[in-house]
Each structure stands twice: as C-alpha cells, then as structure tokens.
Design a protein around this nucleic acid. Sequence first.
DNA 1: CTGAAAGCGCTTACAG
DNA 2: CTGAAAGCGCTTACAG
Lengths: 334, 334
Amino acid sequence: MATIGDVARVAGVSRSTVSYALSGKRSISPETRRRVDDAIRELKFTPNAGARSLRTAQTGVLGLLVQFHEDEFAPAMLQYILPITETARTLGYDILMMTENDGAEALTRAAESGMVDGLILLDVIDGDPRVDALRATHQPGVLVGLPGDTRGLDVVDLDFVAAARNLVDHLVELGHRDVVLVSPPRHVFDRGGTYSWRFRDAAVQRASEIGLKLTARYGESQQPAIDANLHEILDESPDATGLIMHNDASVAALPRLLHERGVRVPDDLSVVSLYSRDFARWFSLPYTAIESSPGLLGKVAITQLTQRIAHGDDAGPHGTRLVAAEIVDRGSTR
Amino acid sequence: MATIGDVARVAGVSRSTVSYALSGKRSISPETRRRVDDAIRELKFTPNAGARSLRTAQTGVLGLLVQFHEDEFAPAMLQYILPITETARTLGYDILMMTENDGAEALTRAAESGMVDGLILLDVIDGDPRVDALRATHQPGVLVGLPGDTRGLDVVDLDFVAAARNLVDHLVELGHRDVVLVSPPRHVFDRGGTYSWRFRDAAVQRASEIGLKLTARYGESQQPAIDANLHEILDESPDATGLIMHNDASVAALPRLLHERGVRVPDDLSVVSLYSRDFARWFSLPYTAIESSPGLLGKVAITQLTQRIAHGDDAGPHGTRLVAAEIVDRGSTR
DNA sequence: CTGAAAGCGCTTACAG
DNA sequence: CTGAAAGCGCTTACAG
C-alpha cells in the first residue's frame, strides 16, 4: 500500500504538499497539483484511515447500536438500519454495527477506544442502560426511541401520541363507536418500551374525550401465540367495528387470520395500523396506516448527530424531535 | 481520554511495561502488574484503536458488503447480517457495514484505506464486480454466494443442488407425479444469481431422472405481481399435486393466497420450500422446507475469513464450502 | 523483569 | 506557493 511519502517522492514534492493537495486547505500551483494527482493515480494512493484518525482524532465512523429483543419483530429493524447507513454515507460516514446483548458495554468500548465519532442508539427504552453509558462517554450520540429522562440528549422518534389520536379520529369520523386496540405484548410495556404506552394511553384518552368505546388489549409477538391471541380478542369483542393494530408481528399475521375467519375488510371490519411503506410491501398489508417513516427518522437522526459532531453545543440545544404522524389511506376503513 | 503514557506515569513504570501488561507478551512481576492494573482502572484506560492499527496494521474490523436488489426480498437479508455480526464479535472483530450501490467502490475504499482486516461479500452473483475489486485489493475476503469463477477465493454457500434433489425426492417418495417449481424472478437468473439456476437445473434434472413431471416457472418478488403470478401458475397446472417454492417473497404470500383459493395443505396440495427457521417464524410459514441455515453460513464464513486473516495461505487452500441442505418436516406434504 | 527509543502514516503550525 | 519538523498513541526490537 502506497503512503503519502511515496506519492511525495514520485511527484517530487514534500509530504505536506501532498496532504494539502488532498485536503484543499491551502492553494497549490496548477503544475504541482497535476504532478501530485498523477502520482496519486499512478500509485493508487488512499490515505491510511488509522493514521489519519490518530492525527485528527476523527474517524469518519459512526457506531450503530442495535438490540434484538425476543418480544420484538426482527425484520422491522432492517427498515431503520438501511436508511441510517445510507444517510451516513451521504454525509461521509461509515457505520460500525454493534449487536451485542450488552449494548452499554459495546458502546463504551467503541467510544473509549476512539473507533467512532458518534453513536446511534436504536430502539431506546425507558431506563435503557445504553443511555447512561452514552452520558458517561461524553461522545456525541442520538437516540431513536424516547426514554423517560432525555436531559442533555438528542432524541428522534415518531409522534406516537399524534399517531394514536389520528387513527382514533379517523375511525370516529367514519361513524365507528366500538373499537379494539391491539398493543405490543405486555412484556414490551413492562421493560420500558415507551412507544407502547405513549400510543395506547393517547388512544384511550382520545377515545374517552370523544365518546368512543375503545378496548385496549395486549398482543403477542410469536406464533402460535399471535393467532390464538387475535382469535381471542376478536371473539371477545364481537360488536367492534374497528380494529387498531399497533403490533408489527400481529398485523403481519392479520390478513391470513381474518381470511380464515371469513372477515372482510372493510365491509365487516375497518382496520387501521401503524407501519412503514416497506413493511406494508414486504408483508402485503392492505391497511390504512400511520406511516412510521423509518427512512425519515434515520435521516433526521444522522443529520442531527453529524451536526453535533461538527459543532458540539453550538449545534443548538439538545432536545427531542418528534416526527409527524401521517396517515396513508389504503381503503381499509369505511 | 487517558493514554498509555498517563497509565505509565500513574503506575510509575514505562509505557512499554504497560503495553506488555496489556498484551501479556512478556512476563511482569506481580507487584508491577498490580500497579498497572490499578492505574488502568483508575484512569479507565482503553487503548486507542487508531494508534494501535497504525502500529500493527490490524484493525479488528471486518467489512460487510451488503447489496439490495429490487428483485430480492430485503427482510431475508437480516438473517445473514445478524449471525455474521455476532460470530465476528465472538472472534474479536467488529463489523463495518457498507450498503452502497457501488459495492466495488466501497470495498476498494475500505480495503485501501486500511479500515478493515478482511471483507465479507454477501449475496454474490456471477460476474459480481465486487469480486474483481476483492481480487485487486489482495485483502482476505470471503464470499457468501457462489460466483462462476472461484479461483483463489474462499466461498461459502448452501448446497442448492442437494437441496433441489432432496425436495424432488421427498415428493416422489410420497407418490407425486406432477409438480410445479416456482423459481426466483427471471431477472435474478439474468443478472447472475447462481442459486436460482443451480436449484432449478438440479430439480429439473433429478425430476427427469426419476420420471417426475416438473414444470419450472419464474416467480415474482413484488406485490401485486406476486399474487397474479401465483394465481396464473396454479391455474395453468390444475393437475399438479406438489409445489416447490424457491422464492422468498412468493412463499411469504402463499398461505394467504392458498387460503383465498380454498386450497388446503397438504390435503389438496403438498408444498415444500427453502427458507430458514427465522424466516418461517416471521412469516408464519407452515411448509416443510430445506433449512437455508443463514446462521451456519455466517459462522462458517467468518471463521474461514478470520483464519485467512491470521494465517494467510497457511490457512489451507482456497475453496468453496457448500453447507449441507437439511430438510425440516413441518407436515405440509403427503 | 524492565526501560528508552524508533517508527507506523498522517496533518498542521511554523517558517520562508 | 512550498518544505521541514513535530507529534498524535501505540507496539516491539534492542539493550541491560
């Protein structure tokens, strides 16, 4: 592998000139520039990342901390990972992906060893140990998912409160009076997945405000429990005319299950949910839904993080950005 | 951030002693060791990754090149990414994930800049430009997916030939005489996805050897084309009693579609396929299938790669490892 | 069992 | 417009 010294020798200039030609941080005569460029091309020179990061204390790498919970639906995670990786690259960063169970330890290791310039925490929950680890490192970081205590943190999440209200209003406007909500599994509530109760509590409150009967139930995330749970829920609310699905694994199973029960959508039952366009495509889901916007969330998160890396506290106050909840009408309600 | 010099000062020893205490490459007196360990703990010292990689020319990072084709089923990719990341960590490596469209350029950039010790190419096709780029870098690499020319390469893939034979034999043993195969979309064949024709050609050949009528059809990978395509295929082979699904997106849609058509499995139709246990779980797929073993493939690939990194050509001859195709009986045939 | 020193490949203040 | 030199934080041959 060629070094900057090799390039300097071939071009007949000093190493600093090669470095400045690369960075553009001072002006170079056209003739010198040409010779340097030729030498770089001839030697296929690429600056060594380790040396550069040692000198500049910048790596051009962001650490992405992904966690997989048994009670969550793994394929949904990919929707977030991909746009994050792509947005990062657009801004000149690569992604170091860390999937360890002990996310706090992984985060600390990446930060303390200077492997990354910043950190993205995916699927953050209330009381998430990674958040304490992030605070301890003094590294720039951004959370996707809202914890309880956000002091001093940059956070991005979907506006689940607005999402729940929108869906409730949508059904009420169509004349529904008896609706069932299928939430994430109870275990998600218990371990601090704030999106679960933010959505449910907002739906319950909105329903009571406008006189809708709303029955909130826990869903499941693993077969065969999903099917049994959905059958039970539907059996126990025979008069419900609307169904709000806030559960990835359950809504993915719903089309087949409703077909088995002979329930037609929207003729017999109006169904609304919350998921992304990609998710709808992968699972052939035909329901009107709040767009969960993983691509936008990833983009906002990475943009915020890179500005924090570049400007520190001058990038503005730390805070929470809730992405607006927009409804995509797929005709599954009436 | 504390440096090795800070630790040395606090412990009252030289920097080399701290370094050797860390690496264990020479013996240290118990008393010195204690003082060094105390200082490391006190200062929360973690060696700087950039400095270490500059000195040792080793990064402890592997580059993972992921590609997303429009004609493939994205959620299936996660099955490979996760076990690769986890196996790598077990062996002391982190994963730099690269998803650029121009995979060859990304690979070259990662390798030439010395960001990684080795490369994993996911979903390799025949004529894959990343393979040429890999050869040019002289970096250790492993391919998941079999290209046409494997000279000098370490390759890991599922044994699709054995998989196809197993499934054909399984159906024939049960007495089936007329079977339909749904392959990946035509576009996957055209762009060099060797798994598509390795599986199809082996199935066709095996069928002709043992006198089975086998109709091979192209599937689709995007709705609504998937449904239309499957309906057409089933309509045009009304006498077929068996169905071999070699198409992730189509098989994911099959349970609902068969239900809509009133086709019961296995009473009216025997169905076999090829996917992983995770995939079956995510999509509630009830079909007997060849286990595609993404976890095992990832593990074999990473193990092979790390040995190549450690021992170069002494790690044994370059070659192709085909993972055995095992059938998981889910009772969808008779 | 331990230390002083060289050097990995960059970037950048300093000097001209 | 350009160059010589220092130094980022490690590891390891060399010396004792």
